[in-house]
Simulated scan of single mutants.
Amino acid sequence: MKITASERLDWFEKLSVVLTGFSLSELLGTGLTKTYLDTIDQHLGEDLIDTLLDSFRKINIQNEEDLTAEESGNIQELVESKNNESITKLVILLWYTGQWYGDKSYIVSSQSYLEGLVWKAIGAHPMGGKQPGYGTWGFPPLTFSS
């Protein structure tokens, strides 16, 4: 797949929307898309992620934030394929925790810890950062409908 660096980042962002379940604006709001793609390249090499991005591109999704049943099935097949299963898990873990879990585990940056999607997913704030503010203990906790 010979595409520009900008197109490559764009496809990584679209894939990340599908893998995480968060909107593109939420992912871009973290400021970490390029950092995460660089981290993956550093540990796995560009060829491996480019193969995954090319396979994802071929699915031809119309709207990453509102998949059809057929698109969901194709994504599931892509994610569960023997060649892609481990890399898609690493991408998901990277977005949710801000930590690389490959050959050696480490938190990518202080920003990646603070912006981990896990905090939004559970309606909490990262310990030691992004405190909810004075007096917020007086309000009932957030609830999520099932």
Score class of each variant (00 low, 15 high):
M1S: 11
K2A: 13
I3Q: 11
A5S: 12
A5R: 13
S6A: 11
E7S: 06
E7C: 02
L9S: 09
D10P: 03
D10I: 03
W11K: 08
E13Y: 07
S16Y: 03
V17D: 01
L19E: 04
L19Y: 12
G21H: 04
S23C: 02
L24G: 12
L24N: 07
L24D: 04
E26K: 04
E26S: 02
L28A: 14
G29W: 00
T30P: 05
G31D: 02
T33A: 15
K34G: 05
K34Q: 13
Y36T: 01
D38G: 01
D38A: 06
D41S: 05
D41H: 11
Q42R: 12
H43F: 01
H43E: 12
H43C: 08
G45M: 03
E46V: 01
D47T: 07
D50H: 09
D50G: 10
T51Y: 15
L52I: 02
L52W: 05
L53W: 09
D54C: 06
S55T: 01
F56S: 00
R57Y: 15
K58S: 07
I59L: 08
N60T: 04
N60L: 04
I61G: 02
I61H: 02
I61E: 02
E65K: 02
E65S: 11
D66E: 07
D66F: 09
D66W: 03
D66K: 03
L67R: 10
L67I: 12
A69D: 12
A69I: 09
A69T: 06
A69R: 10
E71V: 07
S72W: 05
G73M: 03
N74V: 04
Q76R: 14
L78C: 03
V79N: 01
E80P: 00
K82V: 11
N83F: 11
N83G: 04
N83P: 03
N84G: 02
E85R: 15
S86I: 02
I87P: 00
I87N: 01
I87Q: 01
T88P: 00
K89P: 00
L90F: 01
I92Q: 12
W95M: 09
Y96R: 14
Y96E: 15
T97P: 00
W100N: 14
W100C: 14
W100R: 09
G102H: 00
K104G: 07
S105V: 14
S105H: 11
S105W: 09
S105G: 07
S105P: 02
Y106E: 10
Y106Q: 04
I107N: 03
I107R: 06
V108E: 04
S109E: 05
S110D: 14
Q111F: 08
Q111G: 07
Y113Q: 01
Y113F: 15
E115R: 10
E115C: 06
V118Q: 09
W119H: 04
W119Y: 06
W119T: 01
W119P: 01
K120I: 04
A121R: 08
A121L: 08
I122C: 05
H125P: 00
P126V: 08
P126Q: 06
G128T: 10
G128L: 04
G129C: 10
G129M: 15
G129Q: 15
K130C: 04
Q131F: 15
P132D: 08
P132S: 13
G133V: 14
W137S: 09
W137R: 00
G138L: 15
F139Q: 14
P141E: 08
P141D: 09
L142W: 12
T143I: 13
S146D: 11
S146W: 11
S146F: 13
